[in-house]
């Protein structure tokens, strides 16, 4: 698909999210996947600040637990934290640069071990306030082009709009309440990955793939279905089990 068509598709999806009852985590995950398709990056994550001003992972282009952990490492160090605090984008940071290794002694080597060569952080802004950051990893040393940087900022803005306009709450009062709902949903999803992995005797990543396939096929919102499962209000036997390894 041509780049222009790809971009158009993203904005159609955004428009849909405004009309339909949509699932935030699922939407942000798809948006992260789109970032990887549209920009010259290998992985993308959406990070949102919690009440302690600590960045939490809401979604990533790949739900692989290792990638999630890499984003989680950025809660107290890394370009996303710097970007969140300064409100300014940080692009084309070479992870092999001794300065990067020194500035982020845990994050930089972990990112390198995962095969990433450079990284970028784009602020998610709500008016003058920064609420989080988009983290973009590259496996090549090519700097992010100006066009890509501009588009990345547009996608970060779209993520912000999506978080703030979700109507999953029957009566949403405030932006902060929306942000908290999103963060809670993310944790429920992780708890449910564990529940399903143990019931099915598979890895948490495999459990998530089967869970998401079922939710999408049956038009369930991921967060809503996850809450039902965590509360024991949904019979998980209905979900086709992934193959076991043990």
């Amino acid at each position: 698909m041509a780049r222009e068509q790809e971009i158009t598709k993203v904005f159609v999806e955004v428009a849909d999210s405004l009309i339909d009852d949509f699932d935030l985590i699922d939407f942000l995950q798809q948006l992260s996947e789109r970032c990887v398709e549209l920009l010259d990056v290998a992985a993308c994550g959406v990070l949102l600040a919690d009440e302690h001003d600590v960045l939490q992972v809401l979604a990533a282009s790949d739900e692989d637990t290792r990638l999630l952990e890499l984003f989680a490492l950025q809660h107290d160090q890394g370009p996303c934290v710097d970007c969140y605090r300064s409100g300014l984008p940080r692009t084309s940071i070479n992870l092999e640069d001794p300065n990067a290794q020194q500035a982020w002694p845990q994050f930089a080597p972990a990112a390198r071990q995962s095969g990433f060569v450079s990284t970028n952080a784009i602020p998610m802004r709500l008016r003058r306030k920064v609420i989080g950051a988009l983290g973009l990893f590259q496996t090549s040393g090519r700097p992010l082009s100006d066009a890509d940087a501009t588009l990345a900022q547009a996608l970060a803005d779209v993520a912000t709009i999506a978080i703030l306009q979700q109507r999953t709450l029957a009566h949403s009062e405030t932006e902060r309440s929306q942000l908290q709902y999103a963060l809670t949903s993310r944790i429920v999803l992780e708890q449910v990955k564990g529940i399903l992995a143990e019931r099915w005797q598979v890895t948490t990543d495999e459990a998530f793939v089967a869970f998401r396939a079922y939710a999408r096929a049956h038009h369930h919102q991921l967060s809503h279905l996850a809450r039902l499962i965590a509360d024991g209000a949904f019979d998980t036997e209905q979900i086709p089990r992934p193959p076991q390894h043990r």
Binding site: H52, V54, Q56, V57, T65, L68, E69, A72, H75, D76, I187, E190, Q191, V192, K193, G194, I195, L196, A197, E198, R199, T204, A230
Partner: peptide
Amino acid sequence: SADTLLHAVVHQATGMVSVQ
């Protein structure tokens, strides 16, 4: 600390132990 709750793996383990 509060930071440990940032890690997806803690929540995943919680889910697994609840079933076990």
